[in-house]
Design a protein around this nucleic acid. Sequence first.
DNA 1: AACCCCCGTGCACATATGTGCACGTGTAGG
DNA 2: CCTACACGTGCACATATGTGCACGGGGGTT
Lengths: 328, 328
Amino acid sequence: MTIEFQHSDRTQDALRASHLYYLQDLTMEAIARELGTSRSSVSRLLSYARETGLVDIQIKSPLDQATVVSDALHRRFNVVAHVVPVPDQTTDVDRLDRVALSAARILTQFVDSNMVIGVAWGSTVSAISRYLVPKATHGSMVVQLNGAANTRTTGIVYASEILRRFGDAFGAQVQQFPVPAFFDDPDTKIALWRERSTKRVLELQESMDVVLFGIGAADALVPSHVYSGGYLERTDHESLLHDGVVGDVATVFFREDGSSSDITLNRRASGPDFATIRRAPRRVCVVAGTSKVAGLRGALAAHLITDLILDESTARALLAGQSDEGPS
Amino acid sequence: MTIEFQHSDRTQDALRASHLYYLQDLTMEAIARELGTSRSSVSRLLSYARETGLVDIQIKSPLDQATVVSDALHRRFNVVAHVVPVPDQTTDVDRLDRVALSAARILTQFVDSNMVIGVAWGSTVSAISRYLVPKATHGSMVVQLNGAANTRTTGIVYASEILRRFGDAFGAQVQQFPVPAFFDDPDTKIALWRERSTKRVLELQESMDVVLFGIGAADALVPSHVYSGGYLERTDHESLLHDGVVGDVATVFFREDGSSSDITLNRRASGPDFATIRRAPRRVCVVAGTSKVAGLRGALAAHLITDLILDESTARALLAGQSDEGPS
DNA sequence: AACCCCCGTGCACATATGTGCACGTGTAGG
DNA sequence: CCTACACGTGCACATATGTGCACGGGGGTT
């Protein structure tokens, strides 16, 4: 008639080990004894617990003494900045990786149950998706921000892989958006936008709680997908140049001052317009590498960003510019 | 004209090191190179960051697969249980210590800015106070639940030391309650309760967001202060026995069924009545050692507890009893 | 039944981390 | 100016942790 206290599950052991290790400061040796197993197994249990998100490690920069840089960003652009320390001479590839790793872990804190999470699928978001720390939530939904198909591929595999990673990590349902990144004919877009299946996605986008995106920039050293993946024609590039575009967010282009009206290509873009993005209370932008500064500046001017995760050099480059935006 | 990015502060280094270590998985060696210091200093920086609460490590038992025990407690008593793994043969002193360590770290998660935090000052809470992890908050207030003076000492030093630790850890103001634990004459209490200085404390207690307390039990192996510290006379003990008391929370006694009416001694107790405690949305009870099970059962019956932190054996002992409380 | 594959385990070794100690620097006081 | 002291640093060593490898026990297949 005794109640059974089996800890059959590997997770149970991991939980217990984590508690003993992180909450009671026992050594792995001691934990091994309590669990009746070998020290190495404990080491593995703990890695498992970390990978699985059973253990969650957060860094809290005391708000009153945040770093000078992040503080300056807050004052200048009215965003919460998470500055990722990366040595200056790091290559842009490594830089992206390190920023993505940090971003993935920071992102976890923003996600919770019953949220609608919009994600783009550029190289930045893709990198992040590889490092996501699982967090169990209920009733959440991951929605794709913009289409992925281009003239060479449907892009589905690539984009859906990214989406799937997000869905897996947060136990969320995934809503794909199976349309081209850019339409050939704006009228097709208009027509498709009237379809009920499309509308469902658009409505989800309207109710996003969190949006995650990078910045597209033509001259990034790690080229953004949109500019290198066969999505745009030569004439498109010329059109962008002509319209004074400095970058894009989820296929929607903008100028350095944040304006995006009368940019021809936007009529064919599949991404959400900026009003939709701004409707989300938390809008997380991740940027690695100074080549995206101009674009970033535009996105800030457009008030697309509430939380900015970026590497240190980029933060400096951003601050080095003179134009003040100030809290609106 | 370059902006200065000094990281003069030790905290800044610690923050950066923590980011690199916990968010980017760099080795301390690598961090030392980036910071231009020795590996040992990095090790020290990281300890500093942990002690200081710059880094916050949480264990999240996925709600859908919480341990069997904590789950059973939830169903049986409608509390969120945090079961601290402790080997069965541990002495009660060690047991208290380990539970207190875990409790201190769990407690951090419950505290936030602008909260009123009520704390008792028994041996359990005292142990917890020694392990608190600092967490910067603003506008918080720590309020003492019950008086501490007795016939031998004013108790002020002891209780205030505990209170101070809480205040320090959370950057909170401290509100002491300089009255006897038990009055000799109930009328003195009534009179004093009308004083404005007393009323201020009582009002604070009415608006507590979090309460932290242990369980007092006469037969605990690590004797509760109230029963051993010269607070009660022989006749008092007899009176308690006569009234069927199984324990107390902050000097207020109750029976196994949770009732506390007509317990003579309560008229002389300085602690808040149970209605006041129940007004707090989060009521954290910490218990180590099976000798307190009877008392704990009473406190549960009185609905004094929303969050229960206890060691494993005690949890089992609690469950081993047959009486069901069930969600109310 | 015999076989094989998958998985979890402990061992032994390679790394990574923690810490006593001695040194050097800066500051307050004599 | 000298002395004393507090504090932070790196070194060297002691511990603690991570990981490749080989072993062995289910469970499914032939």
